[in-house]
Each structure stands twice: as C-alpha cells, then as structure tokens.
Computed example of a mutant assay.
Amino acid sequence: MNTVSRIRAFNRFYTRHLGLLEKSYLGSGHSLSEVRVLYEISNNQGMTARQLIESLNLDEGYLSRILKRLETEGWIERAQSKKDRRQWLLAMSPAGYEKIATLQHRSNSEIETMLRPISENDQSALTGAMATIENVLTKQQQCDVQFHDLRTGDVGWIIMRHAELYAEEEGFKAEFEVLVAEILAAYMRNHDPDCERAWIAEQGGQRLGSIFCVRQSRKVAKLRLFFLEPQARGLGLGQKMLDMCMGYARGKGYEKMVLWTHESHEAACALYRKFGFELIDSKPERSFGRDLVTQNWQIAL
C-alpha cells in the first residue's frame, strides 16, 4: 500500500472510529461543522464571521447558514461593534455556553471510554503518534513558506493589510493607515541595506506576513511592521520570522533590539515574552480612535 492509500485508509478508520461521519455529532442534533463553529466562538468571544471563515477555512455561504441556525436556536448572539458599526460580532448566549459545556463533557467521556481498555504504554504510543503527525504536517507547511526582501507591490500590500486587519480586529481608524504609510515611506527613502532588512513571507504566491529590522542607533535595532495573516497564525511561522529577524540583527553587530506595540496584541506580546523580550514601560493613550495601552519592549542580543 503506497503512502497516499495508507493515509486515506487511516482517515476512513479515524473518522469512523470517532463517529465523525454521524449526522448528529455527539447526539447534539448538529453536524460536526456546526459544533466546531460553536466551539470556535466560545473560545473567541467577539470574533467576526470573516475571522471564522479564515480560521476554519469554510465557505462563506455555508458558514452563513450555520450561523443563522445557531442564532435561531438561541446558542449564539450577534452585536454591532461599537468600534466599527459596519461589523457584527459573534458571542455565545447563556444557553450556548451550557450546550458547549455539555458537549465537551460528553466528548471527554467518550474518549475516556475508548482509552479505558488501552494500556498506559499504548496510550503513550498513541499520543506520541498524534504529536508526530501534527509536527510533520506543521513543519511541511512552514517549509513551503518562502521569504524575500521587498518587491514591487509589497509596500502597498503591507499598508493595505495593516489598515484592513487592524480596523477589523482592533477598531483602528484611518490614522493608523497613515502611520504605516509614513513608516514605509521613510524606510524606502532612507534605509541602509548594509544593516536594515525587510522580509515578506509568501506561500504559493500568496503573501502571509512581514517583519522589518531597522536601525535605531549604531548598537540598537528596532523591530517594526511584524504581522501575520489570520490563516497563517498558529503554525509557528511567527516564531520563525522573529528568530530570523533577531538573528540578522545579531549578525549585523546590534547589541539590543527594541519594539513598540499595544497591550491588546496579546498573541504577539506572548511571543515577545517567550523569546526573552522585557517590557520596559507602558502607558494609556488615545490613538487611532481608541483608548489603548502602548508598550515598549527590549532584549539584549
């Protein structure tokens, strides 16, 4: 049996063994896709339908039908965003929270029942095999990603996507787009190719993110314009980009790297902390149409 046939056979076994093909998942009266959407909303209160589409890679029309059913049955609620009146945010209702808790308990019970006759050694082998599958596929996704310096069209794309994403996810107004444009204009006019560098992450011709190392002083580098498209998050790509940027700065003789960000960027801040960055100061201020807490971080290289 070749690799393709073996993987397809495993998929058939796995979906059948866990009951993933049943019309009513875990006896909920809903499909696996509907329950998965509910789970995603329960863990990301206030997300938009667009974010759900990007997170779960669902067809827009199919997701619309799922959301309509979940809302009709009283499991989710929609509220107009106070930051952007064009957006509608998704949240769990009390009944929805109760429902997802019941399903999670039922799922845990079924897995515990499945594992009960299996020895501890075999359970370790099972979870180890799962980790191997996840690691191999994640590594392959990262291997397919290419990095290059700025090319024609990249600057416009960075400005556009920063403006769109931060408007959608943070409620930032047009002033933020102006700031990003000013940063890039200054970089394009003045950057020193001997000690400054930009990276664009790309996969299959699609841009996924950017990161910049710029000179603040002879010994201090500044990290700027670091972001990832929603569909590229959670794959370890951000870690790879940050490691690449810091390695470049060390190689150019910088002794310290600094960055400026906002407290609301929780995932990015967690990544900075993981890499050893130290939070130097923070202060509340009104910027981009929002009340924010700005932060300055640094790390010795």
Results as ranks from 00 to 15, higher is better:
residue 299 I to G: 01
residue 280 I to Y: 10
residue 168 E to I: 03
residue 16 R to V: 12
residue 152 T to M: 14
residue 117 P to V: 13
residue 215 R to C: 08
residue 114 M to E: 05
residue 20 L to N: 03
residue 46 G to E: 08
residue 139 K to Y: 11
residue 287 S to D: 10
residue 275 F to D: 04
residue 279 L to C: 12
residue 258 V to S: 05
residue 263 E to K: 14
residue 45 Q to Y: 14
residue 167 A to S: 07
residue 201 A to F: 00
residue 232 A to K: 04
residue 285 E to G: 14
residue 195 C to T: 06
residue 116 R to L: 10
residue 128 G to Q: 11
residue 204 G to I: 04
residue 72 T to P: 01
residue 135 N to M: 14
residue 201 A to I: 04
residue 149 D to P: 10
residue 19 G to C: 05
residue 266 E to S: 09
residue 207 R to F: 00
residue 154 D to C: 04
residue 245 C to L: 09
residue 176 F to A: 00
residue 46 G to F: 06
residue 75 W to V: 11
residue 185 A to Y: 11
residue 56 L to M: 12
residue 175 E to N: 10
residue 10 F to C: 09
residue 207 R to V: 02
residue 269 C to G: 03
residue 286 R to P: 11
residue 189 R to C: 07
residue 30 H to P: 01
residue 169 E to C: 04
residue 236 G to Y: 09
residue 167 A to Q: 07
residue 81 S to T: 13
residue 197 R to P: 01
residue 249 A to N: 05
residue 227 F to D: 01
residue 81 S to K: 12
residue 276 G to S: 09
residue 120 E to M: 12
residue 240 K to A: 13
residue 64 S to M: 10
residue 56 L to K: 05
residue 33 S to R: 12
residue 204 G to C: 05
residue 71 E to Y: 07
residue 103 L to A: 00
residue 16 R to S: 15
residue 129 A to W: 12
residue 27 G to N: 08
residue 123 Q to T: 03
residue 146 Q to M: 10
residue 91 A to I: 02
residue 112 E to L: 13
residue 121 N to F: 06
residue 52 L to T: 01
residue 172 F to S: 06
residue 246 M to I: 15
residue 215 R to V: 04
residue 175 E to H: 06
residue 44 N to E: 02
residue 16 R to Y: 08
residue 56 L to E: 06
residue 209 G to K: 04
residue 128 G to P: 13
residue 245 C to S: 13
residue 109 S to G: 07
residue 102 T to D: 08
residue 162 H to D: 08
residue 50 R to M: 06
residue 122 D to I: 02
residue 126 L to T: 05
residue 104 Q to R: 14
residue 149 D to T: 15
residue 18 L to G: 03
residue 1 M to S: 08
residue 84 D to A: 11
residue 45 Q to K: 14
residue 105 H to L: 03
residue 60 E to T: 13
residue 46 G to N: 07
residue 253 G to M: 11
residue 45 Q to T: 13
residue 203 Q to N: 10
residue 169 E to I: 08
residue 298 Q to R: 13
residue 205 G to F: 00
residue 278 E to Q: 14
residue 222 K to S: 12
residue 280 I to V: 15
residue 301 L to S: 06
residue 79 A to R: 15
residue 197 R to K: 15
residue 144 D to W: 09
residue 73 E to C: 07
residue 87 Q to G: 11
residue 93 S to L: 02
residue 15 T to Q: 08
residue 202 E to D: 06
residue 22 E to G: 10
residue 120 E to P: 05
